[in-house]
Computed example of a mutant assay.
Amino acid sequence: MTASDMVDWDLAIKIGSRVAGEGPTVSRQEAADVVAELRDGAARSTSLVGDFTGLHAPAGTAPVLVVDRPGWITANVEAFGRITEPLMRKMEDRRGPATGMTKAVGSRVTAMEVGGLLGFLGGKVLGQFDPFAEPHGRLLLVAPNIVNVERELEVDPSDFRLWVCLHEETHRVQFTAVPWMRDHLHGEVAALADAVDVDPSELVSTILERAGDLLRGNSDVSLVDLFAGPEQRAVIDRVTGVMSLLEGHADVVMDEAGPEVIGSLREIRRKFNRRRKGVGMLDKVLRRLLGIDQKMAQYRNGASFVTGVVDKVGFDGFNAVWAEPANLPSKDEIGDPDAWVRRVHG
């Protein structure tokens, strides 16, 4: 069984693109100017990130792509197809191959679910590094969403675009300057898929029940928690530690490397933090179900870890985190930078 047997990916792209919508209205010239400025911002950010962090990515790796909402959705469908293959094979071993009407209907139903989720996210994501694209990953900057947010926040467009580029370029540098990071994360995702022991037929009713709990204010769990047996939880905790590090590191870089070139940075950060809290009940429920609230916590906790370590051992000492997988912080160490310093630096 392949991922395409379980999900009609073409349908997922169509549904996701319809849900996400086209984004803000801009003229053809405005669109061209935004694309050019984002590409220039990503290029400018490379040296800013390198000078501040001490990490230097080899030239010519991990291209930067400026995309629209359907482009982001298509890229993530491709990534899902690659990383879910082991899970699809495991489901086939457990339930047997799908055939005939069951296969056709099941793949379309799943496509509607995946497309709906990607459509919701596709209208919000500003940028993303896709570490699973061959051969070295790729950086995606979602132009209509960046324009939409800069208008919503009423901030200087050029400053905001460079600020976003600094964050996302940091992720590109993390994965291209640290050669083992991509394979390490891929291995953790594969381990998580191998540990999954959930019957897909039981998920729908459970998801609806959890959504009802959230609407009534009775629960703070996300969909990730549905898969959290002991073995899976151990993998999730390791991935949480890594992602908190990567997100927090990028947040520190965008705020600390940017002031000299982004005059309105403090205003942007203040307004952007307010936006991260979400608006409206439906938005908050979806953010919890999709684990977006947990991702916001990763930014905060990861940034505190980075600054806490730098305060103790400086940036050179912090950069030991990139030396080998054993030096990555655990989920507990993210909340206790001193523990990481003691373990790694003695």
Rank of each mutant, 00 (worst) to 15 (best):
D5S: 14
V7S: 09
D10T: 00
L11P: 02
A12H: 08
I13A: 05
S17Y: 01
A20N: 01
E22F: 08
T25I: 12
T25E: 14
V26K: 11
V26P: 07
S27V: 10
R28H: 00
V34C: 09
A36S: 12
L38Y: 06
R39P: 03
A42M: 09
T46C: 07
V49L: 05
T53Y: 08
P58S: 05
T61P: 00
V64W: 09
D68S: 07
W72S: 04
T74C: 06
T74L: 09
T74H: 10
A79V: 08
M91K: 09
E92K: 08
G96R: 09
P97V: 13
G100I: 06
G100Y: 08
T102H: 10
S107P: 07
V114Q: 01
V114N: 01
G116R: 11
L117N: 06
L126S: 12
F129K: 06
P131D: 09
P131G: 05
H136W: 14
H136C: 13
L139Q: 03
I146V: 03
V149G: 05
D156I: 12
S158V: 05
F160N: 00
L166Q: 04
E168N: 03
H171Q: 09
V173K: 07
V173L: 12
Q174G: 14
F175Y: 15
A177L: 02
A177C: 01
V178F: 14
W180Q: 04
R182Q: 15
L185K: 10
H186L: 15
G187K: 09
V189I: 15
D199R: 08
S205W: 11
T206F: 10
A211C: 08
D213L: 13
L214N: 08
S219R: 07
D220Q: 09
S222Y: 07
V224W: 14
E231Q: 14
Q232R: 11
A234L: 12
D237W: 12
G241N: 04
G241C: 05
S244Q: 03
S244D: 02
L245N: 05
L246V: 10
E247P: 03
E247R: 04
E247V: 08
G248E: 13
H249R: 03
V252R: 02
V252N: 01
V253P: 01
V261P: 00
G263K: 01
S264G: 02
R270C: 05
R276F: 02
K277E: 14
V279K: 11
L282P: 00
D283G: 11
K284D: 10
L286R: 11
L290G: 11
I292V: 15
I292A: 13
Q294Y: 15
K295N: 08
A297M: 12
A303Q: 15
S304R: 13
V306P: 03
G308F: 11
G308Y: 05
V310G: 07
K312C: 04
G314P: 06
F315D: 08
F318N: 00
W322I: 06
A323K: 07
A326C: 07
N327M: 01
N327K: 00
K331S: 10
G335Q: 00
D336W: 10
P337A: 01
P337D: 03
A339L: 09
G346E: 02
